[in-house]
Design a protein around this nucleic acid. Structure first.
Lengths: 337, 337
DNA sequence: CTGAAAGCGCTAACAG
DNA sequence: CTGTTAGCGCTTTCAG
């Protein structure tokens, strides 16, 4: 007993009209008389007619759908970005499809392929940390699909981007540590393959130099972007010959790992080791002590990215040069420093 | 310079074959000779052919896509459910579309309509707290679209469901409080319109009765499911004539609100007021003191719900009676009690 | 104002 | 083994 869904033909049949007439009436086309429009509309409601957007998309060669690829939705930075994107997309009649890469490059490539097959009109992406190459994204522009990166971007692909001021945020964080009197400041850095990893590390190095502090290579530990990576890096730092007085972590999940490992060693934050994160994830304000960190307005980033993408979609012919939007960051000082 | 995407016809033209032959070759149909298959496949790769799933779906009258409607993805209970759903959906060749209701019944109804228009094969939903009526979901089964509820379910719609043992979990939580010596146990209850609100409240009432403790109506405060609701309810409890010795909150976000309000009043948890949540959200283990709560295996719930849904989709004709799967809950005792 | 015809890209049934 | 034909549900163009 498969239920066949109602189509324009069904309603045309009952009304003894041609189905194209019905189609026009449903779309409020000026051709059609108010009377027939009314009859069509009321029968449509009565029969519970739902237009088939599959068919419409096929005909129109456009789906009014955008894809969003993020590493992990449970990271509340990304959840907030998604909400921002939805806000503007829905407001302009677009739908969204959210895809998680799980920080996995292969999964990411599969999502790209699926989104192309589903003929989305545009894609927003924040790159997985295991994606050393960005080649799998090139298919998008090649297929005429708009592409905007946010947060973790691919520098060697020439498209619009939205990023936080990663360099500036890192500078603020490190400056605050130095001004608070910490001399031996270490950095748990993100993967060199990610833009945020590189830029935040540059900010760290730059600010130390500004303060004429010698860069100690043992104080820069490279790793991933998750909690576990913070644990591992901190273990290394705490077992080295000179223990740092303060740690600047590439992001809040990593800072959380550091936090746990520092506590596990029965050390006091900030007396023994001060700690700064990046991202202002919800969790950070609940730690004991609450974490000093850098906000990066994820909701605004999401809205900005969606607006850029829709602009590209709506005038796809224009070859405007690509834009990079940088959103402000701000240091939030709490008790961990 | 709109880029037209490659179709079967393009590759057929270059190979001087009929496009249906190409279509079959692409799908590895036994009709086609290995030689032509090979030529087709390699040209497809060379031209960067991406099959148009829109067209395929239209023809097949099936999209291999399931929709998931959740209140808020930033709640990590739901993020974890989504991951579980994705795990099984991807494994069986299905795609997912994640929709947030933002706890808003109207938004939820819009999502339902959009999903129907997009002809998804099935929908998974956890109901928004403002949805007092479930009527907007009835269109789904009526249109022949499979429907499975999880976590927050609609009891008056006859479909498959996956729920935690809400009653049992509440009983465990309250029993633990009583056994720990707390006599005056209050409950911050969820909306009566939600299944979790009702069932957890029943568990609370039941366990008090089991212990011959008089139910004090002033100790049951009804509210929503978010942090703010916990704040408001706690304010009420703390300003009443008799202050409770312990609070059982309907879920972790509400418990978090309670936690904040208790601390704001400079009261000690658990000495002045003990606190139990429900859900084991990530945050709960980081509070000070860490929160005693009830786990409900969100990842497993997601997998179970997806499996039930796919089973319905794959044998849509069979009118098997609807199933309700109950997943175990377990009390996690931390320092807040 | 309404109807007819064509086509979006694909698959399925049937013919050669 | 390959080709032909028809059609999924809709929109668009052109006739009536």
């Amino acid at each position: 007993m498969t239920v066949r869904q109602i189509t324009v033909k069904d309603i045309a049949g009952k009304l003894r009209l041609h189905y194209t007439t019905v189609s026009k009436a449903l779309r409020d086309h000026p051709d059609i008389s108010p009377d027939t429009k009314h009859r069509v509309l009321s029968l449509a409601k009565e029969l519970d007619y739902h237009p088939n957007s599959i068919a419409k998309s096929l005909k129109k060669q456009a789906t009014s759908t955008i894809g969003i690829i993020v590493p992990l939705i449970k990271n509340d930075f990304f959840s907030a970005v998604i909400s921002g994107v939805e806000e503007v997309a829905y407001g302009r009649g677009f739908n969204t499809v959210v895809c998680q890469s799980n920080e996995n490059s292969d999964r990411e490539a599969i999502h790209v392929r699926t989104l192309i097959s589903n003929r989305v009109d545009g894609v927003l992406v924040s790159v997985a940390q295991t994606s050393t190459s960005c080649d799998h994204f090139r298919a998008l522009p090649k297929q005429g699909i708009a592409l905007v990166f946010f947060d973790r971007v691919c520098e060697d692909i020439n498209t619009d981007k939205v990023v936080a001021d990663d360099f500036g945020g890192a500078v603020q964080a490190v400056r605050h540590l130095i001004q608070s009197g910490y001399k031996k400041v270490a950095h748990i850095a993100g993967p060199k393959s990610t833009s945020i990893g590189r830029d935040r590390c540059k900010g760290y190095v730059n600010e130390l130099k500004q303060n004429k502090i010698q860069i100690n290579p043992e104080f820069i530990i490279y790793g991933g972007l998750q909690e576990d990576d913070g644990v591992v890096a901190t273990r290394k730092l705490l077992s080295s010959s000179t223990i740092p007085e303060a740690i600047f972590a590439v992001n809040d999940p990593v800072a959380l790992g550091a936090y746990k490992e520092i506590k596990r060693n029965a050390l006091n934050i900030p007396k023994d080791v001060a700690l700064v994160g990046f991202g202002n994830n919800t969790l950070s304000s609940y730690l004991d002590p609450p974490l000093t960190t850098v906000t990066q307005s994820p909701y605004e980033q999401g809205k900005a990215a969606a607006n850029m993408l829709l602009k590209r979609i709506e005038n796809s012919q224009s070859g405007n040069p690509s834009e990079v939007k940088v959103v402000e960051t701000k240091l939030i000082i709490r008790k961990s420093t």
